[in-house]
Every structure is written in structure tokens, then in C-alpha cells.
Amino acid sequence: MSADIRRRLIGWEGLLLVFLVVVLGFNMATNPRYLEIGNQVNLFTLGIEKSIVILVMAFVIMTGEIDLSVASMMGLAAAVVAALFEQGVPMEIAVLVALAVGLGFGLINGFFVAIVGIPSLAVTLAGYIGFRGLARLLVEDRSVGSFPDWFTALGQDGLLGPITGPMLLYLVMAILAVTIMHFTGFGRSTIVIGNSVSVARFSGVRVARVKIAIFAASGLIAALAGVLIAARLGAVRASTADGFELDIITVVLLGGVSIFGGSGTMIGVLLSSILVLNLRNGLVIAGITGNTQTGIIGLLLILSVLVPNLVGAGRERFRRRAADRAAPPPGTSGEGVSVRPSGG
């Protein structure tokens, strides 16, 4: 395990680190106070909900599946809180109901993927459309706000100095995610499933159970993130968190997790999480606006897969050519046994 981590540190994770330093350097050059704790806290607050969902999305993608429904789930959870609050339900109960809805729909997603055997792309595409539809049903085209003070304070006020509650929660969850992924049996099961479902099954991994657990967690944590975004913004619309799935999936893939599952590290995901936040902030400093930022993130997403592919293909070709050169031409190899280059 540690050798694997060391190898990756000089590989993809190292590259991310270099990139991060470059972005930070650029941002520092334009704004000397950039790295001050206040600014970094602000930065993190803006993307905290996405950061939280990214942690669980890493598990989903690690098994070779995908969950396109997380952003709609965030919107639905926020809408559930808002709609119940409007009906006079106490906020605490509204939040619990929203979390239960997330867990329930996550279980349903998991059931269809793991038990019925439908591709997760199709299942969560249905969720992507359906959950947003339910959110629209609940809050229609209104903007629901004026939540109790304690609720909005939860999302906005510092708990430990300037550090907010959600941020502390994120720190705990990030440590948990790294631990679960790389130091527990569950994490190893996750990675094995991503590598090969049949290998996992033959080694006694309960594939269906692990997948259902991960999709349920995905629903629950997306709902939690939805509640947090409602608290931070202090108002909920049906379009809350619209389009977040692109960012969330991009960060996971940029972190070096393979879309086919089975390879990547949680450290890489955390690094790319920080990188994308700072990059977005740098783009704001450079005067590049929201929509264009999304385009640049999209470009990054493509490049994060394309470049390693091209480098891999180039290296492969180079190795094969080197092997061809190293191997003696057929016929000259002593006993007439033709030696074939073993590259590949």
C-alpha cells in the first residue's frame, strides 16, 4: 500500500500538487493577501457542499459506477426542507425528513443498479430528471426563505474562529473518507469491485451489498449537502445546485480516479478539490465569469483523461520501438530460435 502511495505521489498526485502551487503562486502574485486564513475560509465556504459530495462520489466512481443524480438530490433535499418549513413543520424535523428522503432514494438507486442490474448511468439519469422534477413540484417557481436564525447561522457563522460548522464537518468526513477507502476492508472491497466485479465476487466480496451501501450513502450525503446549501444561501429555489454534478464528477476524475473504477486515491481527490476551488477563485480574480469557468472546468475534465491516454500511448510506442531495437534481427540469434521483443 505505501509503495503504491509513494508511486502515485510522484505520478498523478505530484502533478496535481505542482499545478496547485502554480495556481496559488499566480493568485498570490495578483493578490498578496490571498493565502490569509480569512480568504481561504471564504473560498472553502463557497464550495463546501460540492466538496462534501465529492468525497462520496469518489467511492461511487471507484466501483466503476456513476451517480448523475447528486445535484438534483441536493436540490430536492433543499426543496423538502423549504416546503415543510412553509407548512409550519419544525426545522429540525424538516431536516431529518430531507435526510431520510436522500437515504431512501439512494437506496432505490442502489437497488436498481446492484439488484436489478440496470446501468447506473440510466438509473441515475432518471434520478437526475426525476428528483429535480420533484423539487419543482414542491417549491414550484417560488423562492422560499426566512428560515430560523439558528439554521442560517449553521451555514454562515464561524464555529471555531472563522471556520464554519460545515467546514469542520467536511474535515472530519475527509479524514473518514481517506481512512475508509485505504485502510478498511470496505474500501478494499470498493476498489476490487471497480477492478473486476467477478474477481470481487470470487474473493467473497458481497458486491451488491457494497454497491447499495455506497449509493445509499451518496443519496444521504447529497441530501445533507442540500440542507447545508439551503442554510448557507438562506433561500431555496427549485434550481438550487443545478448543474453541480459536472463539477463534482470533474473533481473526482481530475483527482486521478478512473471512470472505469478500481484505481485512484482519496488524497488525489482531496488535492484536486482544493485545486479546482483555487482555480475558480483565480479565474474570478482574472475577471473570467461563471459560465466560462464552467467551460474551463469542462476542458480540464477532458484533458485530465486525454493527456494521460496520449502520454500512455506515446510511452507504449516508444517502449515497443526500443524493444525492437534491442532485439537482434531474426536469424542471428544463435540456435535459430527467433527472439520476439517482449514489450507490450
Partner: peptide, 13 residues
């Protein structure tokens, strides 16, 4: 899915 999720954003930009 990655390529076209990316170009979905890019073409719009």
C-alpha cells in the same frame, strides 16, 4: 460520458 460532458459545457461557453 466524460468527453461529451466536457463539450456540453465547452460548446455552451
Amino acid at each position: 460520458i466524460i468527453a461529451t460532458l466536457g463539450t456540453l459545457a465547452l460548446y455552451r461557453v
